[in-house]
Amino acid sequence: MKIEIQDLRFIYPTGLEALKGISLTIEAGEQVAIVGQNGAGKTTLVRHFNGLLQPASGSVLIGDWDVKKYSVAKLASRVGYVFQNPDEQLFSRDVLTEVTFGPKNLKYAKEKIDELVKRALSLTELTDKTETNPYDLSPTWRKMVALASIIAMDTPIVIFDEPTTGQDAVNVARIANVIAELRKEGKTVITITHDIDFCAENFERVIALSKGQVLLDGPAREILGQEEILAQTYVDPPQLTRLGKRLGLKETVRNQEEFLNSL
């Protein structure tokens, strides 16, 4: 499902102008990473996609829906949003109830709910933890519960807000796998991340925000090599991209495979 943003502006009640005229189109099935300095407006931007925030001016279309005309509850059938901090999201007494809550509210048929929940739990490797209280799990696993409860809603658009924060290598790989599965299903995946190596390895398109505006937008290969412009929004190119540059490689390399092949 397509997302169209036209000259979006947003001002917080404190007077802070967080978005200063953003125009973007994200096509159905695209995998997009949003990067940029703390306070650049990344979270503010994506919170417009599911109606948590309303534009001061400009417009956001989710498919044919203008977000100004639809409630958060309604938009939840099109846009799933995994919070940066799972503790702001989780509230049920056990993992199964938590993961079932979303699809149940979307009023899917019972069989479909069971199937979606089963799949979400298996993708996030939570199948053996269904009866546990989410708050008895470690922060790592709480993050997976937050992921599962959104994936289970089967929305065409899924947003992850800093999914790899505080996660070890094994769990980062698990999250990458979830994103790859969603891509196979043709879903649009939008991820906010500071983990630029994770970004380079899992996303084809990168949008860099700076001070409420789009600084760069394009294929990851083009964007991630632009060290000087990225520095304006406090982003470093990925480790291997930087190393490749220092070694004088002609092409911008993004990951291990590209790096080794270009040697």
Partner: peptide, 13 residues
């Protein structure tokens, strides 16, 4: 305890 987990890369540096 992971003081920069939510920080941008240059801020982390």
């Amino acid at each position: 305890d992971e003081p920069t987990s939510q920080m941008d890369p240059i801020g982390t540096r």
